[in-house]
């Protein structure tokens, strides 16, 4: 098991956002967490990336190791857990190239960096064309490519994706998920968080359904897609 989360509880100012969430991701797998706005999806990813403190009793293990021993930057640079945050959050004042380079800040393997950089430009030729452009002046779709490319450069064992489809036109969205599948096929596991349940379940092998901080359903994507409650609540009937 690559990532194992047990009894995850997170509170913001005494209001609990996650009430003991259990889930796991296997090596090479694509797993999704679906749920409405405010369900606690982003909070889950933030907890893995060590951006929010978790409550006593929560455990997160990565490759059998206690993840809480690592600070946020070490989670990325030493464990290889990359995170594409909600709303892309690219550095608009840096160029495309600088955004990608920054993501290798703590990497020492210059050969590997070169190879990965070349791969990013293969997967997203658009970024190659725009290398020297200020990232803030790119379109939403291009910024999403950059956000994923940046994550690809920073860590490769697992990629945490927070609503990558948000604000993308259907065609761009399809392109994005095709790219993500390629990245996955090259060995990176994916934990995808989405409000767009149809897209997420089509993409992932397994899924978890989160409702106001509680796990309500889990299973294979095909089973979840056939589940009447999921259909009613998340797939529009």
């Amino acid at each position: 098991m690559l990532l194992s989360v047990k009894n995850l509880r997170v509170s913001y100012d005494k209001i609990r956002a996650l009430h003991g969430f259990d889930f796991h991701v296997n090596e090479g797998e694509i797993v999704c967490i679906i749920g409405a706005n405010g369900a606690g999806k982003s909070t889950t990813l933030r907890a893995i990336s060590q951006l929010v403190p978790v409550e006593q009793g929560s455990t997160i293990e990565f490759m059998g190791e206690n993840l809480f021993k690592y600070t946020a930057d070490k989670v990325v640079s030493q464990l290889g857990i990359s995170h594409v945050p909600e709303g892309r959050r690219i550095f608009g004042n840096l160029t495309v190239m600088e955004n990608l380079k920054l993501a290798t800040f703590s990497r020492k393997d210059s050969d590997g960096i070169h190879r990965d950089m070349a791969r990013v430009f293969e997967i997203f030729p658009r970024l190659d064309e725009r290398k020297q452009q200020k990232a803030g002046t790119m379109s939403g779709g291009e910024q999403q490519m950059l956000a994923v490319g940046r994550a690809f450069m920073s860590g490769r064992r697992i990629m945490l994706l927070d609503e990558p489809s948000m604000g993308l036109a259907p065609l761009l969205m399809q392109g994005m998920f095709d790219a993500l599948r390629q990245i996955n096929e090259e060995g990176t596991a994916i934990l995808l968080v989405e409000q767009n349940a149809r897209m997420a379940l089509k993409f992932a092998q397994r899924g978890y359904v989160l409702e106001t901080g509680n796990l309500v359903l889990e299973g294979k994507s095909s089973d979840l897609m056939g589940n009447p409650e999921v259909k009613k609540a998340y797939l529009g009937g």
Binding site: S49, Q50, L51, T71, A72, D73, K74, V76, S77, S82, H83, P85, R89, F91, G92, N93, L94, L102, A103, T104, F105, S106, R107, R150, A151, S154, G155
Partner: peptide
Amino acid sequence: RAMAYDFAVVPLMGVP
């Protein structure tokens, strides 16, 4: 420069 633009995301780049 990245920190000046968006503090919160910088650790996700593996930057201490």
